[in-house]
Every structure is written in structure tokens, then in C-alpha cells.
């Protein structure tokens, strides 16, 4: 049975359904989309015994407010956005209760899951909203969020005591060390530039979003700029003509014509995603760490 669970009082700086993303449509130019931080979003679902594919609400920074229309269990994981409910644990909401995300303190993306998962429309096999491509729309004031209809849902009795272990709650303010694999144009860069990628400290710029994170630092210079467009991946590090690397994220273009020095390891993309503008990141060559 589907239930009216939450009403959106304010979407804040951005609120939209996301899940594990859409697979198999990049050859039609459709990016994978999906949660920016699969670690935090995954824990929100695990706390409530939801399937890993259950859609969650992804919040950007701060300002979102929701009203509970029905008693329900929720879980909030990810960025510390000053949530009015405890984070990283299963929480019982009572009808009439309001949840607020008032002020961002660390990280960028916060995830809100409900018991049984949200009932969100699927497009090309995924509930992930890709607004620019008109696949789904972000949440707006007045939207009512439903629980997935169908199977009767019963949480285990132990849920009230569930929380995520401390060591799994990441410190988003720390400088992440991102593993990077050599990209297709690795050899187009000088030995000095390849070394510099890993030795230098890079700063996340404000021109960073679900499409890509632009970094700034001492510029890199490949031996050649003009290229025939080639496929991009989530995590691909492209170096455009200003020499400042761009890491492609989940709503990024499926192809691009700049040299690709590397690819951020899939497990570390989430760590970059939670870095705010002005925060530093470092790279470490993944191939060296293995073997």
C-alpha cells in the first residue's frame, strides 16, 4: 500500500530523487546520473533494510524542509547540513513532525531514505533525475512523496537501535587522497606533468556540480590539445586548454574532445563529490598501489 509520507515544504538549494543510476544509455548520449555519494546513500538504505536500488532524496547543501504526513521510519546520511533529526541512524518520525536542514557544516550532498523506499517514476530504468535532459524533475514546494506501493513492509524489531559505525561516517572536511588510474592520453603528458598530478594539491572550484568538478592548481600541459571526441566515464580527468583538470561526474557529457590524463577510481568519486568549493584534494596513482 502506498502511503503519503512526506510533504516538501522547501526544496532548499536542490532536492531530487536519485538511485544507482541508469545503465546502458550512454551510447544514446544519456549520462548515468545517480547518487553523487553512493557510500552515504547506500548506508541510508541499509539502515532501513531497503534494496540497494531504492530511490533516495538527494539534497544539495542546505535549506530543505519536509513535513511528515504519516508515522514512518527514515534515515539521513551524508553531508552535515544541520539536520533537525539525528544522522546515520534509523529515526522514527511522527505525523506532523517537521525535518529541517538548516545550515551546511561539512560535505555537499545529504541523503534522505524512507522505509520501503520512495515511490519515484522510472525513466530508462532509473528514478534518477537528470533535469537538463528532461528525465524527471527536481522536487518543488508542495510535492508529496509516497512510499513504494506493493509488498507489505515490516521493519525488523531491532531497527530502533540501528546506527552506522563511527568509522563509516566520513570526515568530509579532510583532504581526500583520490586513487587515479592512467587515462587513454596518459602518454600525451610529460613525465613531469604526470608526476605533478599526484604531487600537487588541487583545489575544488565553485564551478563544480553534478556534471563535473573543476579543479584549480598549477596548470598541466599535454603535448596536444585538439582531439576527436572520445567517450568519457564517471571519474575521467579531462584537461582542457587552460590546463586545469575537470573530473567528470554523474551528469557529465558522454563524450569529450580534451585529453584524458586519468580516471578517478570508482570507489573514490564519492569522496570527491563531498568536497566543497575551496577544499583541497590530492591524487595518488592507483596502478602503483596495486601489485
Amino acid at each position: 500500500m502506498s502511503a503519503h509520507l512526506l510533504e516538501v515544504l522547501d526544496p532548499g538549494l536542490g532536492a531530487a530523487f536519485q538511485d544507482h543510476g541508469r545503465a546502458g544509455w550512454r551510447r544514446f548520449g544519456v549520462p548515468p546520473s545517480g547518487v553523487m555519494d553512493d557510500h552515504a546513500a547506500g548506508w541510508a538504505n541499509v539502515l532501513l533494510d531497503n534494496p540497494p536500488t531504492a530511490p533516495v532524496v538527494e539534497l544539495l547543501l542546505q535549506g530543505a524542509r519536509f513535513l511528515a504526513l504519516h508515522d514512518c521510519w527514515i534515515a539521513v546520511c551524508g553531508a552535515d547540513a544541520g539536520a533537525s533529526v539525528p544522522m546515520w541512524r534509523a529515526v522514527r518520525l511522527c505525523a506532523g513532525e517537521e525535518i529541517r536542514f538548516s545550515r551546511i557544516r561539512g560535505g555537499v550532498w545529504t541523503y534522505l531514505a524512507v522505509e520501503g523506499g520512495f515511490d519515484a517514476p522510472l525513466l530508462l530504468g532509473s528514478a534518477s533525475v537528470y533535469a537538463r535532459g528532461r528525465l524527471g524533475t527536481p522536487l518543488v514546494r508542495g510535492d508529496v512523496l509516497l512510499r513504494t506501493p506493493g509488498a507489505p513492509f515490516r521493519l525488523p524489531a531491532s531497527v530502533a537501535g540501528r546506527s552506522v559505525a563511527w568509522e563509516e561516517r566520513r570526515n568530509y572536511d579532510a583532504t581526500p587522497l583520490l586513487r587515479v588510474w592512467p587515462g587513454p592520453q596518459w602518454d600525451l603528458f610529460s613525465e613531469a606533468d604526470r608526476a605533478a598530478l599526484c604531487e600537487r594539491t588541487w583545489t575544488v572550484t565553485p564551478q563544480s556540480d553534478r556534471v563535473g568538478y573543476r579543479l584549480s592548481g598549477q596548470p598541466l600541459a599535454p603535448g596536444q590539445w585538439q582531439m576527436i571526441s572520445e567517450p568519457l566515464r564517471v571519474g575521467t580527468v579531462q584537461v582542457p586548454e587552460d590546463g586545469q583538470p575537470i573530473v567528470m561526474m554523474r551528469d557529465g557529457p558522454t563524450a569529450g574532445g580534451y585529453p584524458k590524463i586519468g580516471v578517478v577510481d570508482a570507489h573514490d568519486v564519492a569522496r570527491l563529490a563531498q568536497c566543497r568549493a575551496g577544499q583541497n584534494v590530492k591524487f595518488r596513482l592507483a596502478a602503483q598501489a596495486v601489485g
Binding site: 548520449g29 544519456v30 535532459g133 528525465l135 571526441s229 567517450p231 557529457p253 558522454t254 563524450a255
Partner: peptide, 11 residues
């Protein structure tokens, strides 16, 4: 030649 950059965008 390919679709890319944006959904269904033909090169």
C-alpha cells in the same frame, strides 16, 4: 557518427 554530449545529440 555518434550520439553524445547531450541525450540524442547527433554528431
Amino acid at each position: 557518427y555518434m550520439l553524445g554530449f547531450a541525450p540524442g545529440f547527433p554528431y
